[in-house]
Design a protein around this nucleic acid. Structure first.
Lengths: 338, 338
DNA sequence: TCGACAACTTGGAGCGCTCCAACGTCGCTG
DNA sequence: CAGCGACGTTGGAGCGCTCCAAGTTGTCGA
């Protein structure tokens, strides 16, 4: 056993080189699949590496080459299917390209998100994708400075950060229009509070109601992006006495919580109240639920974020904003009012 | 601007040292929060680092210190809530401890899982957590060799690999017993095919049926861990003519697919057929679904896997197997047969 | 047969950090 | 006032790899 492998427990490039009787540089070339190595030598090196159980050390490679082949991802919350599906989209494309993902979740608190972002930056990944970050735009921009960076789900005004978003205003308008076309007038919006995208959805709702001539019946119930918030909102509506004929929920989870509580009170969906969600996560598609909702192409958005990142790495300087068009998915929770 | 920062675009420890008029080693000590630095110097260094915008390079640190403070996670599929919830459990504990997670998903194919594991190993993470790997136990054992490793969701017989599992046989028995106690006799099992845990659940079902004296009515419908498999199974049952009075599905998704298709045929759940799932992912708890199921403490399992890993890193030699007790969660999809 | 030119190889200088032996300094003790 | 720890601090030798300038071969036409 060589000196090195005795030290660290790992076989190193030096070990392979010594054993194969070639130089370390040659082994390096073989490992990097250079075509400047004669077939004979290549085979010799590969066979030796195999025999010794050599595995390249990515850490050392990264340090020496100043490139990591890794993209850092800052997620809000793995638990939320919306984020998981975006991550999945990134992941699949990345692994096709031979990129690795370093995933860190920021958790609910802004404070922690900052710490996590800080940690992520220490890894010197080739780029960064932030999914619905809670941090302020200026803070993000300052932190990531020179690193290629793409933000998903929010607009960040900084010339060196790209954004992948959906047109939230259009999404809201589409939702409201769908309900209006069915004949609804009393349409309530349950919002997403501080969450990313909540603001634009809320104002989109307001404008859509106005342009439909329904400004006077517009009403926003404060919420959050959770099922519980939907339950609370339902209770609030029930307590208020007269129910609206339709509800536009900030996301699918809110819609589901709402529907459940209303159902418990004998209110039928969509007969008595129509409900539309947002995101079209796989949960909305589940058959016992069959929620009408606004689709965001999560998979595609993840994929595109990575694509933009690669463009940046390859030198693109000008800023890119990708605005996806949200689309209406009609299922079983909306119908004409009685 | 120093030589270094001009080269790589980053401020290095040398830059800070030079600027502060101390040695690089001192800066290193400060960055590692050593208490062998005088308060005066510490402050000087920190202030200088702050001023220059210095951020430690984790890559270099890892190479020099032979420890990464990072744990590698190999997940089957981020999209499946079961895995996402386990990852979430690991993540929360890890970030409390200051550990990072390098998450890689193996995807469906075994071939790709092998490549991903290989890639993960190159990162020389301090440890490895494999969640329901598809690779054979011997292959896993050979690959991870000397690295601390914990497998979740499956038994791997290798003295240097720990396992965190639930007692699948007990889970199956619990499910069957619940149905038997309600008065069911014709209980069918839809299995998980090749997936991790499918085998033990299947045989657990068989044994439970036997000991309930129902061996003759036992029947296994081949499936997979997906909603679609549940749909197919439902069609198969419908085509077979006489329906069982109860179904034990391999997991929640299968149960949901099954319920949906049966419902489409006018079959009421649980009035006509009782259905019980497995996993108790958050989907099962959603109110429009309210699936009776067997709970696996996913969060806790993730947490424990990491805890075991840390023990290994701290020198534990003997093997640990943690067997969690699955528990019955009764909701609205099971009842006495008519 | 010789030189030129490919095609391959190689030594060595880093990458940015950790770690350790060694080196001041000091305030004290005898 | 020499001698001695204790405490801070430092230089330098790596960690395992990449990358490049500088060899070393081999081939081929003149």
């Amino acid at each position: 056993m060589s000196v090195n492998s005795r030290r660290t427990g790992y076989v190193t490039m030096d070990d392979v080189a010594r054993e194969a009787g070639v130089s370390r540089a040659l082994v390096s070339l073989v490992m990097r699949r250079s075509d400047k190595v004669s077939p004979h030598r290549r085979e010799l090196v590969l066979a030796t590496a195999q025999r010794l159980g050599y595995r390249p050390n990515a850490i050392a490679r990264h340090l020496a080459s100043h490139t990591t082949n890794t993209v850092g991802i800052l997620l809000n919350d793995l638990h939320n299917p919306f984020f998981a599906e975006i991550a999945n989209g990134i992941e699949q494309y990345a692994s096709d390209l031979g990129y690795r993902l370093l995933i860190i979740t920021g958790g609910r608190r802004q404070q922690r998100e900052r710490a996590m972002l800080e940690a992520l930056l220490e890894y010197r990944t080739d780029g960064l994708i932030l999914v619905s970050p809670r941090l302020s735009g200026t803070e993000v921009a300052a932190d990531v400075a020179s690193l290629p960076c793409v933000v998903i789900g929010r607009r960040v005004r900084s010339s060196h950060i790209d954004c992948v978003m959906t047109d939230e205003a259009l999404g809201s308008r589409t939702a409201v229009q769908h309900l209006v076309e069915l004949g609804h007038e009393r349409i309530v919006h349950i919002d997403g509070g501080q969450g990313a995208g909540a603001g634009p959805r809320r104002s989109g709702y307001r404008r859509a109601m106005e342009s439909a001539g329904l400004a006077r019946t517009a009403m926003v119930v404060p919420g959050e992006f959770t099922e519980d918030a939907g339950v609370s909102a339902a209770e609030r509506l029930l307590a208020a006495g007269e129910l609206p004929t339709a509800v536009f929920a900030a996301n699918d989870l809110v819609a589901i919580g709402l529907i459940d509580r209303l159902a418990q009170h004998g209110i039928r969906i969509p007969d008595d109240v129509s409900v539309i969600g947002y995101d079209n996560t796989f949960v909305a598609a589940l058959n016992p639920i069959r929620l009408t909702t606004i689709d965001q192409p999560r998979h595609e958005m993840g994929r595109e974020a990575l694509a933009l990142l690669l463009e940046r790495m390859n030198g693109r300087e000008e800023r890119a904003i990708r605005l996806h068009e949200p689309t209406l998915v009609v299922r079983s929770t909306t119908a004409a009012p009685r």
